[in-house]
Design a protein around this nucleic acid. Structure first.
Lengths: 339, 339
DNA sequence: CGCTGAAATGTGAACGCAAACATGCGGGGT
DNA sequence: ACCCCGCATGTTTGCGTTCACATTTCAGCG
């Protein structure tokens, strides 16, 4: 018989009933040690694996949590997925990650959510830095707990994000503190909640210092788009301080600046966001605002777990504080007056 | 009733039998148009989703493929996972990704494989750039198709990888062609098959050109480790050409070189590997060997699909050719003789 | 007008497991 | 000696679906 062995095969081999096998498998009490070892031996000999579908069907419970993620090639999202994965393993949960492809995020998200729900996912984590996820979230049946990462407060679900507003302020204040009159901002894609929050933080810090906000440039998350913006900035003599959407954008800006002969940080100060591992090795080493992505992932899973045991959706939230990492790309502005 | 609706609920509502509902759901013939629309309406009204566990249990078939991946925060692995995910969505397969955490790769891989098998995965993709995966692979029951990515030929399973040996040769030859007497190599972690293959390619090209291989330095994949190696290299006046394990290592090397006042490419030529998106914006722009990760992912899924329809394991393999991307970090060696 | 057969629909079982309930067995208290 | 209780184990049922087969309906044809 080449068919995969089932519980009754094991039972027959061990000379017990299938229920005893079940008990051994689930660590139930009231199984004598000798029987247990006999059953275990039979399992090993047959190479038996229990059928999870049957188990889920019988119990009505599944310990798989679904993750809906997109842009998983980016450092942030991939770090979070990784962290969620590790945390899940620790909590004895299984993880199904749906990777939303780029072309049609809404349709793809839907399909993925549909699959996850049909699979009986016990809970869902949405890495939802853009609005596309919100719509797919509505497909989730009411009973299933949800946690969003980088979601919006008005979605009324448990959410965890880095406090990007605070991060934007931090970056801007740091530059201001060095004596820059104002700070330019190369923002990330406007669909991303994080970009908007950072922008708001930037404006807030500027306003608080009584500085006027220069026009904002719009980049993507890529070095390429940063480079484009950098070429513009390099032509603006007034521009002595730049807050970039993320580290890769900062890299692009830095490159463009260098090509135009503007030195960082002597002529222009620059600050990034994320603190990707290689940022410390840019030339010069990038001053940036660090996001603890792994921490976000862990908290997300913890909040999901809370809901799982509570048995219903709640709406607590967590904010992770970013931290400034001071390296070599921020200095005092060039002394224009020659004092 | 707050219980999730099941097929018979839909059937009752539509005034048909549960089997007719099933037929509609599965697109079977012999259902009259009017009944079909009635059933569809009932499904919509009730918000019915079919229970995938029950379906898998009944059919014995599952259309989920498992992916076992590690180091998913790295650009390469994450790109491949993403590509596999997109391809799977296109083939109407569901993907369960197990992310192996760093600390104990072997144990974690095992647990993940175990889960995937119990879940009834139809096939498995192992992103197996290190040996830890091989052991976990043995846990997979014989009937389940396997494809490895970056696996070893001696594992005797279908494998797809980038031809890293060719890549190593490509890089080395490119430097040699510019007149360098020899090429230094900062290698990646020796557990990774890719590192070893690149190293072999490097040695092969050197031997073919009659150049003597200088001692090899060992880095990780990180810019930090590249920096450490770069500090050594910067002190060696003979060293005019360096082939780095990957782009981030190259970045670290470049940084160390710059700190010691050795210019790239005037004093030292440098070549990376991978072509990460930001490599073009390093300063100077990095010459590198491009790996088409997405292509690898797609091919992996295609080969798995082939096995799925064939119904058994096969041992075909695919090799993806890397390509040299010529940018600004390679030049002729400095003219020592002063000619 | 009744017969044939295909189309449309229904019925019962099976998938592999766990939960609830049932049974047998032995030992301690009175 | 009796009963009761707790441990170890077996039996039955049901989870939600699909599959194989049974049944009904209805059109077409001799």
């Amino acid at each position: 018989m080449s068919r995969r062995p089932v519980m009754s095969d094991v039972a027959a081999r061990a000379g017990v009933s299938h229920q005893t096998v079940s008990r051994v498998l689930n660590g139930h009490p009231h199984v004598s040690p000798t029987t247990r070892t006999r059953v275990l031996a039979a399992i090993a000999e047959l190479g038996y694996r229990r059928n999870l579908s049957a188990r889920v069907l019988a119990t009505g419970r599944s310990n798989v949590v679904g993750v809906v993620a997109q842009n998983t090639t980016l450092y942030g999202p991939s770090s979070m997925v990784q962290a969620i994965g590790e945390a899940a393993l620790g909590a004895d949960l299984s993880l199904t990650v749906g990777h939303v492809a780029g072309y049609d995020a809404t349709a793809a998200s839907r399909r993925i959510v549909e699959r996850l729900v049909q699979q009986g996912a016990a809970g869902l984590v949405f890495i939802a830095p853009v609005d596309a996820a919100a719509e797919a979230m509505r497909l989730v049946p009411p009973g299933v707990p949800i946690v969003t990462v980088d979601g919006l407060p008005e979605w009324n679900v448990t959410n965890v994000s880095v406090d990007q507003f605070a991060g934007g302020r931090l970056a801007t204040e740091h530059l201001l503190k060095h004596g820059h009159r104002t700070v330019w901002h190369v923002a990330g894609p406007e669909q991303w909640h994080g970009s908007r929050a950072r922008e708001a933080g930037w404006r807030s810090a500027l306003a608080e210092a009584g500085a006027q906000a220069p026009p904002m440039l719009r980049a993507g998350w890529s070095a390429a788009s940063g480079y484009q913006c950098g070429r513009m900035l390099a032509r603006i003599p007034d521009c002595t301080a730049v807050f970039a959407a993320n580290d890769h954008v900062a890299l692009g800006v830095m490159r463009a600046l260098a090509e135009q002969g503007r030195r960082v940080p002597q002529d222009v100060s620059l600050i990034g966001f994320d603190d990707v591992p290689e940022a410390a090795y840019f030339h010069p080493a990038l001053t940036t605002v660090r996001q603890e992505f792994a921490d976000v992932g862990r908290q997300a899973l913890r909040l999901l777990l809370d809901q799982l045991v509570a048995g219903s959706r709640t709406e607590t939230s967590a904010l992770v504080e970013p931290a400034l990492v001071d390296r070599d790309t921020v200095a005092r502005p060039p002394d224009r007056s020659g004092s």
